[in-house]
Amino acid sequence: MIMKTLTKDPLNLIIAGVGGQGNVVISLLVGKAFIREGYFVTIGETYGASQRSGSVMSHLRISQENQYSPFIPNGRADIILGMEPVETLRILQQFGNSDVITIANSRLIHAAGMEYPSLDEIIEAIKGLSAKSWLINATDEAVKLGDPIFANMILIGALVGSGIFPIDSKSMELVLRESFPGEKLETNMVAFTKGMELVAQ
């Protein structure tokens, strides 16, 4: 019952962020969308640093044929969804390649006790290491919706809206409807649509 054919098998997606931002939620929602359509999905998470301000990443591997391991090999990411600029760059350095596509939140999170580098330089480096990239200030947009946590949903919207991803907005919406009960759904849907708009512009 697989609807679309993957352009590459396995398709390797990395979600990069800072502990507490919500990596695990994004990876689960995206993964569920693929499971609904009959794919094999493997998700690997960084757990120790979750909620404790460390660097975190989720590896999503989608295949029509096999269950893959939860580790994307070095240099083999196809799409990087960055929730924070420095973390996006860190992942690009290890897992990027000439074809990698990047969608990243341009809002920084300081590393405790460390000097944060120039944001412009970071963004330049991200663009330089990506075949194609979108940088959006998902956090500021989320704050407008009432809570920085909606940045996650804006980024999922951007991922789906970018057209680089073999899941359409209808499939993703079904997962969101299943996952967010009652009143929570509405704002999450607004955030999702906002994310789609941000990459369409």
Partner: peptide, 22 residues
């Protein structure tokens, strides 16, 4: 990956990526 890409990726200065300690 393409060695050219690897070279470019490895040239990103370490100072651009401050470590985050738990």
């Amino acid at each position: 990956r393409d060695p050219e890409y690897s070279k470019k990726a490895e040239e990103v200065p370490f100072t651009y990526m401050p470590p985050r300690i738990m």
